[in-house]
């Protein structure tokens, strides 16, 4: 993959990257940092992409690692409650709250599958999990959200 194709592919992933980063970090500045570092790291590691077909999931995996790195640094340096909350309210704050109450290992596959339109296989690649595990997590996330919604 040359630089042009790489740039094009990365730009097409921008919105998805932001939302996935937001699913983990919930903070605009951190999301932007994660995206920036992802662009550099992905370029640096491009040689490890074995099949361009999997670019999106490969790059998402790098993004998730970057988010986790930021999260770790944040946990080390700043108490979680001190993280500034979202500047712009989501259209459905209640749903946002419910979604973010889900543990990350359920929330992330749910968002990747339903919001970003990734297939279970792509989610599995990106999260390095067997596909059946991904399915189970999505099912459990849905069940938890459904229950919360029904109790509203």
């Amino acid at each position: 993959m040359d630089e042009n194709s790489f740039t094009s592919e990365m730009m097409q992933c921008t919105q998805m990257f932001y939302r996935i980063a937001f699913t983990i970090l919930r903070n605009r500045e951190d999301c932007l940092d994660a995206m920036q570092e992802t662009a550099f790291r992905a370029w640096k590691k491009l040689g490890s992409l074995r099949n361009e077909r999997y670019f999106r999931t490969w790059a998402t995996r790098i993004l998730i690692n970057e988010c986790k790195t930021i999260l770790r640094k944040r946990r080390r340096n700043i108490p979680l409650e001190d993280i500034p909350e979202i500047a712009t309210e989501p259209p459905d704050p209640t749903l946002a709250l419910m979604l973010h109450d889900l543990p990350e290992h359920l929330r992330l596959p749910l968002v990747m599958f339903y919001l970003e339109g990734m297939t279970e296989k792509e989610v599995a690649y990106a999260l390095r999990l067997p596909q059946t595990t991904v399915r189970g997590r999505i099912a459990r996330a849905k069940a938890r959200l459904r229950k919360e919604l029904e109790e509203l």
Partner: peptide, 25 residues
């Protein structure tokens, strides 16, 4: 349920950040 409603709009800075990062490759 539209899960997208649980997220704030993606800020313009996201695209700018990505563009400027890619420009520095």
């Amino acid at each position: 349920v539209n899960l997208g409603n649980a997220f704030p709009p993606v800020p313009e800075e996201a695209e700018k950040t990505m563009r400027s990062s890619l420009a520095q490759l």
